[in-house]
């Protein structure tokens, strides 16, 4: 403790710490859901994560090395014969360099960010026949309606692979956020508004989904599984739900709206116009807002 450990040493300790921390966790790389995309949206976002990560890592590494060098060389100690220029405080050329480099980085990153932001509002693949899933966040459950298939599910999603899906989101409770990390980033569910989010699964599998915006005591339990299956299996599942599951009645919907937890359920049908009624009800009966164009 007597003398300062040089930042270089500190850095070495940190690297060691980070590496051993990751080893100790014993968690498989698959558990890094954001880094394991299963569809084009998540892949596209991961590209930007990696690009921005690499760009900033270069700067951070440079700053830490420079700090270590300067502190090592210019410490006040006897017989330090490094140059000492107490009045030197201006250098046009140096300052131009460190104004210019971050500007270049920001411009590069900004261009990619802009392109990606616009592309993510469109379906990930050209499709003549997009599938729609209407999502409602409730206290504290997720209700999914499939208007094309006329079925509904609770706390569970089944989707076909290779099919762009447009999720239309609203909330009949405090605002939440709909997030399936392996398929792509999140979008908020807002009462009185319809938000849109394109996602697509390319690989079959079961992916974790969750609510990402705090909504009260049951919030931590608002998780759901997303099962991605080939189109044939999906069609089979739909007809099985249509033929063998109960309908979602208005009465049952009203119980779902009440705060509480619930398990997984499948419904062969749901009350007509349920989704739009929810959007309109919470909007004072006015025209719904937020059709993907802001307020």
């Amino acid at each position: 403790m007597k003398r300062l450990k040089s930042p270089r040493k500190l850095g070495r300790w940190l690297l060691l710490g980070a590496a051993s921390a990751l080893l100790l966790t014993g968690c498989s790389p698959q558990q890094f859901s954001v880094l394991n995309p299963a569809g084009p949206v998540a892949s596209s976002e991961l590209q930007l994560i990696i690009l921005s990560g690499v760009l900033v890592l270069v700067v951070v590494a440079f700053v830490i090395v420079l700090l270590a060098f300067i502190v090592g060389r210019y410490r006040e100690k006897p017989n330090n014969n490094a140059p000492y220029t107490p009045e030197w405080s201006e250098s046009r050329s140096l300052e131009i360099i460190w104004w210019a480099i971050p500007i270049v980085i920001v411009v590069v990153l900004g261009i990619f960010t802009g392109i990606k932001t616009f592309s993510l509002t469109r379906p990930p693949e050209a499709t003549s026949n997009p599938m729609i899933v209407q999502v409602q966040s409730l206290d504290w459950k997720w209700l999914f309606q499939y208007p094309g298939q006329k079925i509904a599910t609770l706390n569970y999603l089944e989707i076909p692979t290779g099919q762009p899906i447009e999720f239309v989101l609203t909330s009949n409770a405090p605002m939440n956020s709909f997030w399936i990390p392996q398929l792509g980033g999140m979008e908020m569910t807002m009462p009185g508004m319809q938000m849109r989010l394109w996602l697509q699964a390319d690989k079959t599998g079961v992916y974790e989904g969750r609510g990402a915006n705090f909504t009260g005591t049951g919030f931590a339990h608002m998780t759901f599984n997303v099962k991605a299956v080939p189109m044939a299996t999906f069609t089979q599942w739909v007809s099985q739900v249509q033929s063998s599951k109960p309908a979602l009645t208005n009465a049952e919907y009203q119980t779902l709206v009440k705060p509480g937890l619930a398990g997984v359920k499948e419904y062969s049908s749901y009350p007509a116009n349920l989704f739009m009624k929810v959007v309109m009800k919470d909007n004072g009966g006015q025209k719904p807002m937020g059709l993907n164009g802001g307020m």
């Binding site: 921005s52 990560g53 990153l109 932001t117 999140m186 990402a212």
Partner: peptide, 21 residues
Amino acid sequence: AIGGATGVMLAAAPADYQYHN
């Protein structure tokens, strides 16, 4: 430096969809 760097990463809006909250 690290905090600022991750801030720039968060500022990239489409990537933020995966970090938000």
